[in-house]
Design a protein around this nucleic acid. Sequence first.
DNA 1: CTGTTAGCGCTTTCAT
DNA 2: ATGAAAGCGCTAACAG
Lengths: 337, 337
Amino acid sequence: MTRPTSRDVAHAAGVSQATVSLVLGDKWRGRVSERTAGLVREAAAGLGYRPNLAARSLRLGSTRTALLVVPALTNEYFARVHTGAARVAAEHGFGVVLYLSPDGTGPAKDPFASASAALDGVIASSMAADALEAIGGSELPLVMLDSDPAAGGAAAFVNLDLAGGVREAVAHLRGLGHRRIRHLAADVPSWTFRIRADTLAAELGGPAPDTVRSALNVPAATAAMERALATDLAAPAAGRPTAVLCDDDILAVGACKAARRLGLRVPEDLSVTGFDDVALATAVEPELTTVSLPAERVGEQGMRALLTVLEGGTWRAPDLPVALTVRGSTAPPPTGP
Amino acid sequence: MTRPTSRDVAHAAGVSQATVSLVLGDKWRGRVSERTAGLVREAAAGLGYRPNLAARSLRLGSTRTALLVVPALTNEYFARVHTGAARVAAEHGFGVVLYLSPDGTGPAKDPFASASAALDGVIASSMAADALEAIGGSELPLVMLDSDPAAGGAAAFVNLDLAGGVREAVAHLRGLGHRRIRHLAADVPSWTFRIRADTLAAELGGPAPDTVRSALNVPAATAAMERALATDLAAPAAGRPTAVLCDDDILAVGACKAARRLGLRVPEDLSVTGFDDVALATAVEPELTTVSLPAERVGEQGMRALLTVLEGGTWRAPDLPVALTVRGSTAPPPTGP
DNA sequence: CTGTTAGCGCTTTCAT
DNA sequence: ATGAAAGCGCTAACAG
């Protein structure tokens, strides 16, 4: 009752192992007769033959497996990136194994200590940069997601037009009449967030004066924003920020909660915009005006880029477009008293 | 500049390959001298040696890899199950590879078509039952999560005390004064939801009269509940359901949105309870009263169970306890007009 | 204590 | 058109 090997198939079909390999590897055109090929396939199916991947990898020297390095899957954005990457991988007979960077209690200190760590390449998010240090020495092809292209160090980059998203959000708020915009920034030292801050500063014509930082979870964002709002309310109303641009939907949700706790209505008293457009954005009320990011496409492109690099090619592509989705959390600022 | 093999290490250390294997495999006590062992480790470190997992798997016949079958990681519950499973796996030198069942566009039709599919065992959620059919023929050890233990077919089961959770929720609502409780059920043919319905029916002393079914996403739940509520409001107030027990936090969020759209306040006019206690539950307002499920523990236990089975052991454990977390979405029913 | 040897299941020349 | 044989890197008997 042990698993059938290619030798068993060969024996059953009355041919040699080599022939089995050719037929099943789809490399037999003109080298094996139609009839023999049929016999082999029948025998394989009959025995329920499955090639032993370990043996194949050993022989071929490649595992057809990519490592995806992200901070955590509980962040829906990354769950979607994974989905996209896994889909494209599967289409090409590749597998994806995850390495969750040590933000939480990541699975392993060293991605290569993990048993599945026989890898052909790595796809990594900028939010998992620290984890990459562990990989550092490795000579594997690397594709960076949402990272500073100028930084180099990777074989390919997949980026979103985040600057465009920020500009769209700012234009939307300005169009509504907002003059002073606060920035609720993610307190994460990652390029994907720095570019938001830099773009906002450029838009506002100077370093953003009203920046608040918060960890990437709702309670932290609520607390941070509550403090900021309390300060604002204590000061004269004139010139007070009337809108908050948030680095992430999670932060935006926190901002909304904070506003409501202090008796402010969203969007009548305070406008809020988010980033990502995950399910959360439409789960809350009011639904969030937010910059929609094509998370799955990021994963897909990342995998395509890696595949291309592995084939010796070069990967170049424009930034993925993003778009502001206007919903209920933004409105004109309150009119004077 | 090719990757060093154990032979290279042996050569560098001036010993044989076998000795290297013993030392690095930590099986050298009393068989190799301290000094030689040190030499080997030094040489390995110096060369940056990494064992070739494919070769090891081939030799050992086991891959130290488990397949985790879940519907989708974008559901935070399953992302957390994965986190738990991956942690325990890593502690034991195992890897976890994911198979997302075809609810969405799963990565592959056949989990074993995937390249990473050199597996020692499978851990599967009951919500991914269809995917298991594809695996059907396989002789791999199987651990089922949240599935009917009476159904058999698996080497081990990891279950939650969902019935206890339902009973707690009902008791809570009854204690507040609710007499008629509606059930917003997940329209998913999976044991984890059937047990909720069955327990509720038992509690109510008969088949739940006010059941509404919905797909597991916020918009669907909102729509389904909106319809139900509209009917209720058209009927006389007396005897109208005053509380909704939802199979999942996602559904509960939908129920809250529906209520608000029809001008009902939560919890003053309608009480709502959820299931899972994911981040969403505290992101919305009011925060959800919900049955908290230890998702990561489910993943951990699942992996432990599989490890035990792989070692030839038998796994038995009581259902994991759950607990109702009371927050703002439940209150006494409205008093008569 | 350490080295030699065989072989896991597969792919791929090279003969025939 | 097919078969024989070598070898990928590792581990586990068995010798010495």
